[in-house]
């Protein structure tokens, strides 16, 4: 710590507030389906965090021959790496989630027979 103070002893500036009720939002007919959507996005963020770590490790191993946690945390990507990794990230997002943009208006029920002429 910077000094011996505990969190409770520190200068505070916050006051009371009015809480939003967004946590109660149900748009998909069942709160747990809404929750699943949140989980699916959260998993994407966790995967991307691991992917970033892997990319940095690969780079450090190939250029420095060793890697430590501190080297990973302190790593600053070059502009070229930033551009390439952002493109990879956006491609991953599209690859994984673009099914959500599928037109579902022609969706068929399980038991419906397909008719041919």
């Amino acid at each position: 710590m910077a000094d011996d103070k505990k969190t409770g002893e520190r200068t505070k500036a916050a006051s009371d507030y009015i809480k939003a009720d967004t946590d109660n939002a149900v748009f998909l007919g069942n709160a747990h389906i809404d929750n699943l959507m949140t989980i699916v996005i959260a998993i994407g963020s966790e995967i991307w965090a691991d992917r970033q770590r892997s990319r940095i490790m690969e780079h450090l191993l190939s250029t420095k021959g060793k890697v430590t946690t501190e080297m990973i945390e302190q790593f600053v990507p070059t502009d070229a790496q930033k551009t390439a990794w952002a493109a990879e990230r956006d491609a991953m997002t599209k690859r994984v989630y673009s099914v959500l943009a599928r037109d579902t208006s022609q969706g068929k029920p399980f038991g419906e027979e397909r008719k041919f002429n």
């Binding site: 996005i41 991307w48 965090a49 970033q52 956006d90 989630y97 673009s98």
Partner: peptide
Amino acid sequence: NLDIESRQDFLMSYRAFINTDL
């Protein structure tokens, strides 16, 4: 730390995906 940086980075990408394709 790198983990929160990466998670936030992904969420920004997801937001952009929703605001365009979706």
